[in-house]
Structure formats: structure tokens, C-alpha cells
Write a protein that binds this DNA or RNA. Structure first.
Lengths: 238, 238
DNA sequence: GCATATTTGTCCGTATGTATA
DNA sequence: CTATACATACGGACAAATATG
């Protein structure tokens, strides 16, 4: 059985919604306990603390997070809906493990959507997101912080999607990258995974910025083909 | 307050997961109770029995569906994740009411995605889906069953999306249409909503089938612009 | 503005069925 | 095969917030 990473001693630290404090706050930013638990678990998956295939048992988490089973199960439903967790009936809840076909489908989707977004940009604001993400990635690479390079890469392509000018697309892509991150962590060498794409992203940005949509779309496709191959290999190899 | 449509006397009829029967079934198709409740509610929204803005009270539904409050709340989380329900803290759960901006965003997304799919079709199997949906719509129109015409229209454009060749795209579009249906039902005259698009869909299909991707993409864009205007007007008028 | 009733948010206890050692 | 552990689902309890008179 997959070693379930220790999750002890980390209660959800935000004040519970039914308690004191929060005076004056008009319920505007008061996520429910289930929502905060889901956020906490999502964060743990994003940073690699909870890895693909790991079981997230109900009992352990109730004591670790200090919430009831009911609340925890609500949080599970949220994350199952986001396809970050999967439920095996009467066996438990597990961090999703992407198959090679899952990864291929992710990249089929990205090819369609990202290439369309750079091909017919509707929201130039995405360009600034791309630019800042690009710089982030470059400085992170100088620090040899490859995990951060990967985060910047995700942010860069969120910027690409933002060119589409649709909030829904932004949401869908955010969810997609959260899933994909689960597969990233199966790649043994994070440097080999993220470093080669820095220059490709720079090319894509330059072309998009100077309005050469069709050439940008072509380079983007090259990026996606390469990245898909790397991740598929990692998923199949592991 | 929006009249909450009667939901009485309609318990979730599938055998509960922890009971007899199901012998030999290896848990393959055994959705949890929460999942079945969510399916039931989704169906009621799809067919218009539960309308946008209606409150779905916990107590009424627990007695109507014969499930516990905990289970019902799990189902709520599923549907909230699909953006079919919204939660107003300490006030209740309501069927989502789309704003004009929501509708505009839906169509921005559809323009990007559907036009890309017909523009660079990767999965010709979508064409057969389009064709059957087209016929369905035409026969439904002869019967003056405008609700069915709308369903066929959705199916037609699911076929368009299927041209993209991505299971994820199919899922996203299915969720999108479930949302959009909530807005469809605000349009007073369902005939005026769906009938004009029959011929446009036929045009799009013909062009796509004979491989004229760019012209198909143009007609599709015309469809989406027109449909957006109709729905936005209905949402703003209501 | 205040007191009350209703509903939500959250927790706990428990019974039953399933999977696994 | 039995026993243990755990998931599923239900029902009750209580505090907090909202709605109502």
C-alpha cells in the first residue's frame, strides 16, 4: 500500500465559521469548513506533500484536521468533482493517479484550447501574465529551484489561456493544471522536466507579443507535443 | 420568494448501496447515494422542474428523497461544484441564476472551443453525432416539441465539440450545457429560441461534412452570436 | 428595535455492509 | 472462515445566523 504521507498535527487553522471573531466581516470571504478542508488538501497535493495514489483515510484526516467525518466527506466530494481524488467504493478515497491516456487527453485539450487562444487573442491582458511568469521562471532557474520553475511554467500557460478572454476557460485550466501537477511529480528529474521549456516559452511570448499569432501557435504546439511525450513517458515508466 | 416547485413523493428509487440485491454486480455501476441524489436533482433542473432561483431546502428534500441531511449535503457539494447550485451562507442553497455576464462568458468560451473544433477536426466521429442530432431536431420541430428541439440543439453542439477529440472537452461541454439550460428556461417563447437555429445547424453540418472547415467555422460563429443575443436579452429582461 | 421561530453549519454516536488480513 | 478495520449512511444534538412577527 502506498505510504500515506504524514498529515498529523495540522488542524485547519482558520477560525471555524461558527465561532467568535470575524466581527464586521459580512460573510464575504467565509468559506465553509468543507471548503477550507478541500483547499488545504488541494494545497498539499499541489506542493507534493500528498502524492498520486496515496490513500486519504477518513479517520486519520478527521483527527489531523480536527473536523468531523461529515465535513470531511463534503470536502472529498468537492475534490472528487475536481478529479483530484477518486473514490473506490467501500475501499476509500485516493489521490488520483493519471494514466497515460489521461495525460494524452489533457494535452489534446490543451492543444485545442491554448492554440486557439494564441491564434485569436481576445484579451491582451494575458500577455502581461505571460511576461511576469516568464521572468519568474527565469529567476527560479537561476536559483535552480525547479519546482518553482514548474509553477512559473503553469502560470505562463494560464496566461496563454487568459488570452482567450473567458473566465470559464481560466477556471477549467486551473483545474487542469492541478490535475497535471499530480503527474509532474512522477517525473524523477524535475530539472529535465521544466528547464527545456523556458526558452520555448520565451519564443512563444515573443511571437505572441509582436502579433505573429500563427507562428506563436506553431511553437506552442511544439511545446505541447514535447511536454506530452515527457509526461507520458514518466507515467508509463513509473 | 421564488415558489419552490413541489418535489414531494419521489424518493430516490434505486436500491440503496448498502442493501440486498446487486448480487454479482462487482460494484461497477454503484453510485453512492449522494451521487444518485445529485443525478436526480440534475435531472429535475434539466427538464425544468427545478427552475433558476428556486431554493432547495434541506429539510424538504430529506423527506422528499428519503435521505439523511448529511447525504443530501454531499449531493449539494457535487452540484455546487458543477455550478448548478449556489450556496448563500446560512441562508440556503439555490438553483443558480445566470447573469448576463455569465451568459456572455459561456458564449465566449463556446466561440473559442467550438470554432477551434470545427476548424481543426480531429475526431470525425463527432460528425455522426451532429447528423443524428440534426435529424432529431427536425422531427421534433415537426411535432412542435420545442423543448426537444432544444435538447437536440444541445446534442448537435456536443457533437461539434466532439470533433475536438478530447474526453475532457466533452465533459466540460456537458457541464456547460447543463448550466446554460437554466438560462434557456427563462426565455418565454421556446419556439422562437430554438427554431431559427435548425437551419443554421444544418448549414454548419453540411459545410463540416464536406470538409470546408473555415466556412463552417464562420457559420458557427454566426450561430453563437445570435444565440448569445437571444439568451442575454431573456436573462436581462427577466 | 426586539423576541421568537426556522434553518443552516457542524459535530457525534451508531448500525450495517464490505473488503482485507 | 473468522475477525478486524473501515466506508456508508442515518439520526440526533446544539450553536450560530437568518428570517419573521
Amino acid at each position: 500500500m502506498a505510504a500515506s504521507p504524514s498529515i498529523e498535527a495540522s488542524a485547519v487553522s482558520v477560525p471555524a465559521p461558527g465561532l467568535a471573531g470575524n466581527r464586521g466581516s459580512l460573510w464575504l470571504d467565509r468559506p465553509s469548513t468543507a471548503q477550507r478542508v478541500a483547499d488545504a488538501l488541494r494545497e498539499r497535493m499541489w506542493c507534493g506533500e500528498l502524492q498520486a495514489g496515496a490513500q486519504v483515510g477518513e479517520l486519520q484526516l478527521t483527527v489531523a484536521l480536527g473536523v468531523s467525518r461529515n465535513t470531511l466527506r463534503e470536502a472529498f466530494q468537492i475534490l472528487i468533482g475536481e478529479r483530484l481524488l477518486t473514490r473506490e467504493p467501500h475501499r476509500g478515497v485516493f489521490v488520483r493517479r493519471l494514466t497515460a491516456d489521461d495525460v494524452r487527453d489533457v494535452y489534446a485539450f490543451r492543444r485545442l484550447v491554448e492554440c486557439a487562444a494564441v491564434g485569436h487573442p481576445a484579451q491582451p491582458r494575458g500577455l502581461v501574465e505571460m511576461r511576469t511568469a516568464l521572468k519568474e521562471g527565469q529567476t527560479a532557474a537561476r536559483r535552480k529551484a525547479w519546482h518553482d520553475v514548474g509553477t512559473a511554467d503553469v502560470r505562463f500557460h494560464m496566461g496563454v489561456a487568459a488570452l482567450g478572454g473567458s473566465a470559464r476557460l481560466d477556471r477549467v485550466m486551473r483545474a487542469l493544471f492541478a490535475e497535471l501537477r499530480l503527474a509532474f511529480q512522477l517525473v524523477p528529474d524535475p530539472r529535465a522536466l521544466h528547464e527545456p521549456f523556458l526558452s520555448l516559452n520565451a519564443e512563444i511570448y515573443a511571437l505572441a507579443e509582436q502579433g505573429d499569432s500563427s507562428r506563436a501557435s506553431l511553437r506552442l504546439r511544439a511545446y505541447l507535443d514535447e511536454a506530452e511525450a515527457v509526461i507520458v513517458a514518466a507515467v508509463e515508466g513509473g
